Amino acid sequence: MLKILLYPFSWLYGLVVFIRNNAYDLNLLKSREFGVPVISIGNITVGGTGKTPHVEYLVGLLKEKYRVATLSRGYKRSTKGFRWVETTSTALEVGDEPLQIKHKFADVTVSVCENRVDGVEQLLSTDDGIVPDVVLLDDAFQHRRITPGINILLIDYNRPVKDDHLLPLGRLRESTHQMRRANIIIFTKCPDEVTPIMRRVLQNDVGLLPYQSLYFTKLEYEKLVPVFGGKRLGKSLYEERKYALLVVTGIAAPQPMLNYLGRFSGQVESLSFSDHHNYSHDDIQKIEARFASMDAEKKIIVTTEKDAMRLKDSGYLSEDLKAVWYYLPVKVSFLEEEKKSFNKKILNYVGENKSNRELHKRKNSGQS
């Protein structure tokens, strides 16, 4: 019954998105190109596809050779306009994901702006004259006011888009036909192995075009890190299974994390909140009560790296609770030998376009 009620709204939403996309395709709405390599990373669905770990992968790949800048909208921040993200910023000021990137890569330029065109213009007109060699646009597949040099589309391997529907009936932000705008499509959160048959099925599902490249990545969890700078657990958690875990998450899809942690503990309890949830005093009291009710000699609280960014500035946490709170870092890795191919494609694009930009600048300077 609910689906029947949602169909008209889904149809209307699809009509608006269709008109907007066609306006860009017909050049009725203008899309801006910049004289700097721009890479967009985004998805076609609502919910987590692992954008931030993939942005972090690109930052790690590029930062040794190029000046890298990331630009996000800063989802759920309390501020407006362009802002530089510093390690001293708060999640409320700049958003949890940009702050996470800055904490991981302190020497990289991280910024937020809800208007991506204004944001890139700010990055290219800094007071010190030092501009980035490449700009990474986070969650920008639908932001068509900028034409990126490489458009990377992420799709959750476990939530295929083939039979999905447009919002609010389904999870699609726009029609799957728009996947044609992607240069690179990555299936994320894959199992350790994807069979050749499944690869062909997924290739057919997305209607892979000749100019598109298809890759597969998986999530890899790292060692737990104290949220508030306490002592690391060492091997005791991973080898002895003596700790009971309360897993507190404010992300779209917590189940993979719960499955992973279940390998190291016979007692895993969870409290799940909405994606990007800001923890209130009542939330903290609920967590504290749940943790106190757990009957175990050794127990800790585990959260995501993104949640840790929001919790760091909470004024509601007792010192006792801070001492047992850890976050689980995550990174992406490519399946089989795909990493080399992907890295080469990205590095070649940035290197060639950076060279073209510098040549253009030298020519203009010689004419003046």
Rank of each mutant, 00 (worst) to 15 (best):
E319S: 14
W325A: 09
P256Q: 05
P98V: 08
Y57P: 05
R20G: 04
S270F: 07
E269D: 12
L258R: 06
L328P: 08
K361F: 08
P148F: 05
A23Y: 00
E240I: 09
Q203G: 12
F228S: 09
R77H: 02
I19C: 14
L347C: 09
V117E: 01
V201F: 11
K361Y: 09
N43H: 00
V248C: 07
R357H: 11
D156C: 03
N364K: 14
T87H: 00
L12N: 00
L71I: 06
T49R: 03
P148Q: 07
I4D: 06
E222I: 08
D25S: 11
E337H: 11
S111I: 06
P98G: 06
T188S: 04
V247D: 05
E220I: 13
L26W: 15
L2E: 09
A289T: 13
E64H: 12
H276S: 00
T188D: 03
D133P: 01
R232M: 12
H277W: 00
K3N: 14
H165N: 15
G234H: 02
Q203F: 07
A182D: 12
V134I: 08
H165C: 11
Y211F: 12
G234A: 05
G95L: 05
R232K: 12
G315P: 09
I39H: 09
R144F: 02
L99K: 05
E33D: 08
E305R: 05
I186H: 06
L123H: 09
E93D: 11
G74K: 04
N115A: 06
Q203T: 15
R159F: 12
E64G: 13
D96Y: 00
Y157T: 08
S333G: 09
V248F: 04
V68R: 02
R357S: 15
Q267Y: 10
F141C: 01
I39S: 07
K306Y: 06
R159L: 13
L58P: 06
L29M: 13
L347F: 02
R180G: 10
Q367D: 07
N183G: 15
P53G: 01
K312D: 01
K322C: 11
L237H: 05
M179Q: 12
K102L: 00
L153S: 05
G81K: 09
V135F: 10
N343E: 15
P53C: 00
P196S: 10
Q285G: 14
Q100E: 13
K339L: 07
I130E: 12
I152G: 10
T195D: 12
V330K: 05
W84D: 13
L359C: 01
E174A: 01
S213I: 01
Q100N: 13
W11M: 13
V330T: 04
V194K: 08
Q122S: 12
I185S: 09
